[in-house]
Nucleic acid binder design. Structure first.
Lengths: 165, 165
DNA sequence: GAAAATCCTACTGCGCAAGTATGAATTTGA
DNA sequence: TCAAATTCATACTTGCGCAGTAGGATTTTC
């Protein structure tokens, strides 16, 4: 029931880029991201490259380059991103919607484990396929604002004024 | 988001023993279990040994030995069994109730990923910590009966008459 | 042209899942 | 009492995938 580190880092990066862009910094560099989240630069590079290939982010090379979102935040759902990096959400393949594989059990139709795991899969998918990056970013910003915490990626000169209602 | 084979086999075994016991065969041998589910005998042996150590099944040695449930079926919940074999249900450790570990993210309180994964963890736990073996066995038997399928573990001489209402 | 970034590909270590293998201990029936 | 059938205990194996490293190529800006 585990999210890989690779996937976790990828999602963090996406959320950070989303937050930054909402605050008027549409592009972030890998080194900034890595510094904030305290994770290996080179590894993150690979992950962002994968996210780029899948159309979630776009990049600008060279000095003052970096990554920005390639889609509207409200079009980025978490489920597909996780499937991209970690594979199916389902605990066992015989209940996967997106990459079903029949299991070895003698009678799939009457398999109790399958029924149970189908429930679990649906519960997971219900959350991850509904939540969008926009929602998570909004909630995060609201929380930060409520607690008067200045998020990173904001130059000291900039003031943290929420755009949110 | 994956269940290990070890865990899957363990749960299958538990369910099979439950079904068999409900049908009047309180004890099953590893070889029978392995044959029905088509999985390696020695591996299953190890798993059952683990389930025994944790108090879920008990065993009888020697000829006509085998494994039977050590608890009432309605006291066996799936969550704890899965945690025993595969570890925490939570996708990331910082949202685990049973074995929390702080994550490396800079601000756990305002971490959007954490909120999302907490939702997922709760959804998973809600299902797996509520369903009991008794329920899954009952549902399975009902389905089998409705479809007039004779479950395995039943000697040809025995007739499949559901005890259920 | 130098510096600063992304891009690309290959490599590595190592831990763990998924078994195998071997034999000891126990129970039963002949 | 012995042989067969079972569980019990422990050690070993094998392969793969996660979590990175490493090194250099390419692009952009000043």
């Amino acid at each position: 029931m585990n999210l890989s580190k690779r996937c976790e880092y990828g999602l963090r990066a996406l959320i950070d880029i989303g937050i930054a862009s909402e605050l008027g910094r549409p592009r972030l560099q890998v080194s900034e991201l890595a510094a904030k989240e305290k994770l290996p630069v080179k590894f993150l590079e690979q992950i962002l490259s994968q996210l780029k290939a899948a159309g979630y982010v776009k990049s600008k090379r060279g000095k003052f380059g970096g990554y920005s979102l390639a889609k509207r935040m409200d079009r980025i759902k978490f489920g597909p991103v996780i499937r991209l990096i970690d594979g199916p959400l389902a605990p066992i393949r015989c209940v996967s919607e997106t990459s079903y594989a029949c299991c070895t059990c003698p009678d799939e139709v009457h398999c109790g484990l399958r029924m149970l795991m189908l429930d679990v899969r649906n519960a997971i998918a219900k959350i991850l396929d509904r939540y969008t990056l926009a929602e998570i970013v909004e909630i995060t910003l609201r929380k930060l604002h409520r607690d008067k915490v200045t998020p990173l990626f904001l130059q000291p000169s900039m003031r943290f004024v929420s755009i949110l209602p």
